[in-house]
Simulated assay, not measured.
Amino acid sequence: MTETIHSPAGQSIAAEADLILRTLRTLVEPLASLTPGECEVVLHDLRLLPNSIVAVAGDLSGRDEGGSATDLLLRASATDTYSTVLGYGGRNAYGREWRSSTIIFRDSAGTAVAALCVNNDTHAWRILAELAGSMMPQTRLADSGANEAEEFVGDVDEVAQHVLASAISVVDVPVDLMHKRHKLAVVQALRDRGFFMLKESVETAAQALGVTRFTVYNYLNEIEHETAPATDRVSSSDI
Rank of each mutant, 00 (worst) to 15 (best):
V85E: 13
L86Y: 14
L86N: 14
L86P: 02
L86F: 14
L86M: 15
G87Q: 13
G87V: 08
G87S: 15
G87W: 12
Y88C: 09
G89H: 13
G89C: 13
G89R: 14
G89W: 14
G90N: 11
G90Y: 08
G90P: 05
G90H: 05
G90M: 01
G90W: 07
R91K: 15
R91Y: 14
R91L: 04
N92H: 06
N92L: 07
N92M: 04
A93E: 10
A93C: 05
A93L: 09
A93S: 10
A93T: 08
G95H: 15
G95A: 14
G95K: 14
G95E: 13
R96E: 11
R96G: 05
R96Y: 12
E97D: 10
E97L: 15
E97C: 09
W98H: 10
W98G: 08
R99W: 08
R99A: 03
R99M: 03
R99H: 10
S100I: 12
S100E: 06
S100D: 07
S100F: 00
S100N: 02
S101L: 03
S101C: 06
T102G: 04
T102M: 06
T102R: 05
I103G: 00
I103D: 00
I104M: 08
I104F: 01
F105Q: 08
F105L: 15
F105E: 10
F105I: 15
F105M: 14
F105C: 13
F105W: 15
R106Y: 05
D107M: 05
D107F: 07
S108M: 04
S108W: 06
S108V: 11
S108E: 07
S108F: 00
S108L: 02
A109V: 08
A109Q: 09
A109D: 09
G110Q: 03
G110E: 04
G110P: 11
T111D: 03
T111C: 03
T111H: 07
T111S: 06
T111L: 02
A112C: 08
A112R: 10
A112W: 00
V113S: 00
A114R: 00
A114F: 00
A114V: 02
A115V: 12
A115M: 08
A115D: 13
A115R: 09
L116K: 09
C117W: 04
C117P: 10
C117M: 13
V118C: 06
V118Q: 02
N119S: 02
N119I: 11
N119P: 05
N119Q: 07
N119C: 04
N119T: 05
N119R: 03
N120L: 10
N120E: 11
N120F: 01
D121Y: 03
D121G: 04
D121H: 08
